[in-house]
Design a protein around this nucleic acid. Sequence first.
RNA 1: GAUCUCGUAGCUCAAUGGAUAGAGCGUUGGCCUCCGGAGCCAAAGGUUGCUGGUUCGACUCCAGUCGAGAUCGCCA
Length: 577
Amino acid sequence: MKYTFDRFTAEVQTLLSTTKRIPASLLEVQVPKPGIPADLAFPTFRAAKELGLSPQQLAQELVQTIQIAPNSLIGEVSATGPFLNFSFQAENLAEAILNDISLTGVKYGHSDDGQGKTIVVDYSSPNVAKRMHVGHIRSTIIGQTLANIFRALGYNVICDNHLGDWGKQFGVIIAAVMRDGKPQVEGEAALIQLEELYTRYSNQMPQDAALDAEARRWSLALEQGDPAARELWQWCVTTTIQANQQNYDRLTVSFDHAYGESFYEAMLTGVIQQTIEQNIAYRDEKGAVVVEIDGLPSFLLQRSDGGTLYLTRDVATIIFRLQEFQPKRILYVVGSPQELHFRQLFALVRKMGYTAAVDLVHVAFGTISDTQGQPLSTRRGNMIYLEALLNEAMARALAVVEQKNPALAAEEKAAVAEAVGVGAVIYNDLYQDPKRNITLNWEQMLSTEGNSATYLQYSYARCCSILRRAEIKPTEELDLAAIQPKLLIHPAEQQLLKKLARLPSAIKEASERYAPFVIADWCYTTARDFGVFFEQCPVLKAETIPLRDARLALVSATAQALKNGLTLLGIKAPEQM
RNA sequence: GAUCUCGUAGCUCAAUGGAUAGAGCGUUGGCCUCCGGAGCCAAAGGUUGCUGGUUCGACUCCAGUCGAGAUCGCCA
């Protein structure tokens, strides 16, 4: 599918190239800043230099040479100083965009650029026997959105939840459960009890060598496949996955796999052996396996006590994923504190000879701190848990719904509050560049005004409201043959149409930059342009019936495009709120 | 000490080497006989931390510097 804006761009480039004055390598055109009255610009600086002209001269010359064909998407060419500016032909633009959206519907903005290439996305990755907290929320939300984006672009996306289900702490958990008993509750409540068991036991360990020995014994038993240890461990894993699933469902998150770290246990000795044989790693005098790579701090693959490390398991994970999925790319959606870890990991597997066919990308994101700017931690007692966060957001949203729309039925109110509250939490994570740190601010996060998820949802609901009154379903396919898009030449209509034309490129750019905020930003500016249109252009009471129908088609297209954008972000859009 | 990230309006954030650095919140002032006011319009608010450099052109690239955060073999 060649979308309207692509076709417009192609036409402009063809036009430039038929002047025979611009070398093909300098045909780069760009979208001008908002405020410049043009839709595509050709800066003449480089070409002018090549031709020995001043940029202004060249722009003048070109504007006189260029002939626009009838029926073109280009309406006007003008020279503004050194820029050659191209504008859409208003009537053809309207027709083209409404056609695009009508034809593609829920897939408007999607493409097959990915050609079915496989991308593995590694995200969320909570620890077993613990509640998910804000530390996981960014990975979960950003990771799922990136997965949605790449899927929309035609990639074969494999979502893997790399559970923290292994390591020393399980010895403690099993010892504690054996001593104090298994939690008799379900869901997140069970995780709270497991956290308490763990904390109580590990706090007592420094004073009681017997407890410490017991934990070590269980840790070893688990690694050796002891049935009792194994069963308890499995129960922890299952309980955690079930509890987390409640949160995932609310956030529209889902995975293809949840291979935990434990899954790779059997591969680890092979990994260590291989690195030693390849002379990439060596065993030091204390028995630890050390890797030294130029330009990076050295690191370990095996502790002196024989235990393996996080990084060792990550190497095994890459090898497994290459064999199993043959991905072109693996995305690690993990916080920026682990940047060095991934640089070391990627450098190591490159040296081991594994990465010829695959791009390894660490999509790093910043840290969330509390309202005072302090790091969040269990020990500080300021930790915020995901379920509690979503509940709080939902409760606050419910209060707003009660106030704004008291007539709504009770279960409708609850559904809207859930969409609004959860949407706000998601949007708080997606509206800005992921690498920024975030200081938690409840007022700002749950704001229902301005640049907020609520505003986007509200805009969608207003579209739906108009369509409902006109007795059209929000995503119903309109019979474009029966309407006249060419009537949509009001500035507010044109502005909105041009914005709708940009959704495909917003999705593409978001994928190239691993930056969901590009789509969030598109949603927001589109909602704003709809707001202006809404004020200035009556739909149901338009001057004529044909104009009313054309505007209804525009509202329908806006609703569809906005919904598509929000869906990629994982934000639900109710038709009434 | 080394490495990485970030310094843009009072606050929270955009701006892919290009034109007059844009939004939201907050402040001030407007807009409903009319499709949802969770809205719309307008005003005020900037030496892009600082100093150099590269370039026709720098918030953007480079060097240095100041400030904030993070990381630096036996956690993950």
